[in-house]
Amino acid sequence: MLKTTGVKMKKSERRDNLNGFLFALPWIIGFICFSLIPLLTSLYYSFTSFNPVKAPEWVGLENYQYLLKDPLVLKSLKNTLFMAFVSTPINLFIAMLLASLLNSKYKGRGFVRTIFFMPSIIPMIAATMVWIWMFDPTYGYINRIIGMVGIHGPAWLVNPAYTKWALVLMGTWCTGTTMLICLAALQNVPRSYYESAEIDGANAVSKFFRITLPGVAPVLVYQGILNIINSFQYFTQVYVIINASSGGGASNAGGGPANSILMYPLYLFNTAFSYMKMGRASAMAWFLFLIVCILTYIMTKITKKVSNNGMGGE
């Protein structure tokens, strides 16, 4: 009897496993056809020289060696690192500041949260076009506002010294998603900790640095990882700005004034579709993948350390 029951259980398990596999089969097929095969194909292409009208020709490590010598690769990587490690802390600070303000109890709090989140749902291309107009050195609202206090505004998108800072300013406008995540983290900090601190006579600053910040530190580090990864995919804004400035055409393959906003993904795109060097572009993509993996590993280690040393850690 036990033996028969065991056989039935095995048949039931096999049937459940088969049903589960059949339900997952469309996703598996899609992953293999549209993710895994293109990924492995691009790895092969990174060791070849080819374009849409030329068959791939094996060149070994030539593409990777070229990347280390190409000054535009280093320039674009430097610009991307600037966005990753300058824009990310600023965006996290603003998101945390807004979340702290929205965590307070006051009338109309839900409406204010909606207002702060709305920029995150506006299409990026439309938002970028609005910012291009706002950055206009003569008619833009930004220079008009700072002109009210006697400051002569720069040519934001023309002067290479200010172009990347213009992108940073654009990024601070779309921190709604990060703000909501920080707000959820703030609400997850136990209220009893604040009550105990108040009994001990702690002020607002002390409570923030000793309770709030350690409590949300893992979330902040995680958001930092995501923002840094997104910074290495920074493309749409600069592509729109350069096309709007050049009016499209062949000149849009540049990187802005003195290549000051030539981001790595933009240079990768230009290499593949403007210069038609697909093999070199594949090598650039895998080089970027390696950089992101290394940075993600480092940030993950930092996250674990912060989690262990944060509130409740031993």
Rank of each mutant, 00 (worst) to 15 (best):
G20K: 02
A84H: 00
I94M: 09
L81Q: 03
T80Q: 04
F47D: 05
D70V: 01
V59E: 11
P52G: 11
G20Y: 03
F85V: 07
L18V: 13
S87L: 02
K75R: 14
P71T: 00
L39D: 00
I28S: 11
I37C: 13
G30D: 09
F21S: 14
M83T: 00
L40P: 01
F34T: 09
I90P: 01
L77R: 03
V86L: 15
F93K: 03
N19Y: 07
F82G: 02
W27K: 04
Q65T: 04
L25F: 14
V86S: 12
L68W: 04
P52F: 06
Y45I: 07
N51V: 03
F47N: 01
G20C: 08
I29D: 09
F85M: 00
W27D: 01
T48L: 03
W58F: 15
E57Q: 11
L39T: 14
I94L: 15
F50S: 13
I32G: 11
N63Y: 09
P26M: 11
F31E: 01
T41V: 04
F47M: 13
V59I: 14
F31T: 06
Y66Q: 11
N91K: 15
K54Q: 15
L61E: 04
F21R: 10
C33R: 07
P56H: 10
L25P: 01
V73F: 12
P52S: 13
A95G: 10
T88L: 09
S42L: 01
